[in-house]
């Protein structure tokens, strides 16, 4: 292998690792917003991703431009579903974490059943746009790079919203102390409903963005739910730094393990590593480090 080729290989592998990290962050950030702000464990998160994928594909089949379908339609549809779910289910269960978990699991099964009934138990796909590009003798998909870029932009946007806007201030205030926020004239239920809707919209966006890579089928959520959960819980309470640090750690572990074994055992090793991490740092990475970050 010449020097140029090995540089190419390193570059391709680096892109793969970066993509693994970005996709972990992408599929987890909606869950992180909901868990970090509301302490609600949403087991229907995988189904929100699935619904995002279906929204984008159905919109695209009806003639909507693919990018608009993925970046606008999917988050709007799933965000609206999220608000409905919060108003009809979640709000009765605040403070009862176990019951929330169970109810959202019921919702997850229900949505899988519903979507199976409507679309059938088959995989629908859209081909990834933009084609591929050559790096030396290797080829990589441009769409993967776009997903990395969109994820980075999304994380920056969340930071800016949380840090510099009134909405972000309200959200952080309610997160820190709901009673005090209420005393200052905020309405925590309203903040929770909006937060849940935004979390769901982020999940919908993520589901739409990964749809061209994996295809969409009713039980696809199951493939993502464990990864999303270990990222959020491994990251801890801080939404952004937690998601980023855990996604970077687990994404790297997953790619390295996959490189040396098989993709399936890559996932298995990642999950096992996550369990060890939760055992060592029950509060997540940001429970120990980066405490004062968002």
């Amino acid at each position: 292998m010449s020097e140029g080729e090995s540089v190419d290989l390193v570059l391709v592998l680096a892109i793969q690792v970066l993509f693994a990290m970005a996709s972990l962050a992408l599929i987890s950030v909606g869950l992180a917003v909901i868990f970090g702000m509301m302490r609600v464990i949403n087991l229907a998160h995988g189904e929100f991703l699935m619904l995002g994928g279906y929204s984008a594909i159905v919109a695209n089949q009806h003639g909507v431009n693919l990018w608009i379908a993925m970046l606008v339609v999917a988050p709007l549809v799933v965000g609206a579903i999220g608000v409905v779910v919060e108003r009809t289910l979640i709000r009765f269960l605040y403070g009862r974490m176990i019951d929330t978990m169970l109810a959202t699991w019921g919702l997850s099964l229900f949505l899988i059943g519903l979507v199976t009934g409507i679309f059938g138990n088959t995989t629908v796909g859209i081909s990834a746009p933009l084609g591929g590009m050559a790096i030396g003798n290797y080829r990589t998909s441009i769409y993967g790079l776009v997903v990395i870029a969109i994820t980075a932009a999304l994380l920056v946007a969340i930071y800016l919203v949380l840090r510099y806007t009134r909405l972000g201030l309200f959200a952080r205030g309610t997160m820190q102390n709901p009673n005090m926020a209420a005393a200052l004239g905020l309405s925590p239920p309203k903040v929770y409903a909006v937060t849940f809707g935004i979390g769901a919209a982020l999940s919908g966006l993520a589901g739409a963005l990964i749809a061209p890579i994996s295809g969409v089928f009713p039980t696809i959520g199951i493939a993502y739910i464990a990864k999303a959960f270990i990222t959020v819980i491994g990251g801890g309470a801080a939404i952004l730094s937690g998601t980023i640090s855990a996604a970077a750690l687990f994404g790297a572990i997953q790619e390295v393990a996959t490189y040396f074994t098989t993709p399936v055992f890559g996932v298995v090793i990642t999950l096992a590593a996550a369990i060890v991490l939760i055992r060592l740092l029950p509060q997540g990475i940001t429970g120990r480090f980066l405490k004062r970050w968002l």
Partner: peptide
């Protein structure tokens, strides 16, 4: 069954 079980659990 998924639909039914989900509804029952909820």
């Amino acid at each position: 069954t998924s639909l039914i079980l989900g509804a029952v659990l909820l």
